[in-house]
Amino acid sequence: MTADDLPARSRIRKTVGRPRDGGIDTAVIGAVRALLVEAGYAGVTVAWVAQRAGTTKTAIYRRWESKPHLIHDATFGRFTTLVPQTGPLAADLAQMVDEVCEVFGSPVTRAALPGLIADMAADPVVHQRVLDGFANVFGGVAQRLEAARTRGEIRDGVDPAILIEMLGGAAILHTLTYGRLDDGWGARILALLEAAVVGDVRRA
């Protein structure tokens, strides 16, 4: 058994010591993204990432608990917070759709997604880590919907969790089914979301 095969519960724990070297983090994330495109999810190993990044497996395991955690951060790390609010809810929805299209349109995401989903299904620790990574997004969407409700921009009964599932779930399913998001996908999804969330308010 190699270090890559170890379950998350066998991971090396983070320790208190010298300040973390951000240069290593950047190099590792860059190496993972490049290797995903070159070799696919199954072809990425921590040893190979360490060699490409000019560091050691020990240094990587001090920062990331397992290979799936590392690949999750390399794939979705920039999508764990919302971009600054634009104002009206309709503009925010458009911005969210643009962000999702950018993330799921990336060859890195397309390479990582099938393996990451399989690891989430097999390991509850990985599953929870992914959910925790998006906690700020879920909370941010809920806050924006509540503000839009106060401004009278949103239909009654709109659930932020369902809104996220509609957007993220559609992107995941389309990517897994067709391998990529086609050029018109974002516009179609945005039209559906606007009709579901703000449609009757606009007509009022």
Score class of each variant (00 low, 15 high):
S10V: 14
R11G: 13
K14G: 15
T15M: 11
G17R: 08
P19W: 05
D25M: 09
D25S: 14
T26A: 15
V28Y: 06
L36N: 07
Y41V: 02
V44G: 10
V44C: 10
T45Y: 08
W48M: 15
A50Q: 06
Q51D: 15
A53C: 01
G54M: 01
T55F: 04
T58E: 15
A59I: 08
I60S: 04
I60A: 01
R62F: 12
S66Q: 05
K67G: 05
I71V: 15
I71T: 11
D73N: 13
D73S: 13
D73Q: 14
F76N: 06
F76D: 03
F76Y: 08
F79Y: 15
T81E: 10
Q85M: 10
T86R: 13
T86I: 14
G87D: 02
A90G: 13
A90K: 05
A91P: 11
A91N: 03
D92G: 00
Q95E: 03
V97L: 06
D98Y: 05
E99N: 06
C101D: 08
C101A: 10
C101G: 02
E102K: 09
V103G: 07
S106G: 03
S106L: 04
V108S: 05
R110M: 04
R110C: 07
A112G: 07
P114G: 03
G115S: 09
A121S: 10
A121W: 04
P124R: 13
H127T: 11
V130L: 06
L131F: 10
F134Y: 06
V137C: 04
V137K: 06
F138N: 15
G139I: 07
L145I: 02
E146G: 10
A148H: 02
T150K: 12
I154N: 00
D156V: 11
D156G: 10
D159M: 00
P160D: 00
A161S: 12
I164E: 09
M166G: 07
G168Q: 12
I172P: 07
L173S: 12
L176H: 02
L176E: 01
Y178H: 11
G179L: 01
G179N: 04
L181A: 05
G184F: 03
W185V: 00
G186I: 03
A191C: 02
L192M: 12
L193E: 00
E194T: 00
A196Q: 03
A196S: 11
V197I: 11
V198M: 05
V201G: 03
R202H: 06
R202T: 01
R203Y: 00
A204Y: 02
A204I: 06
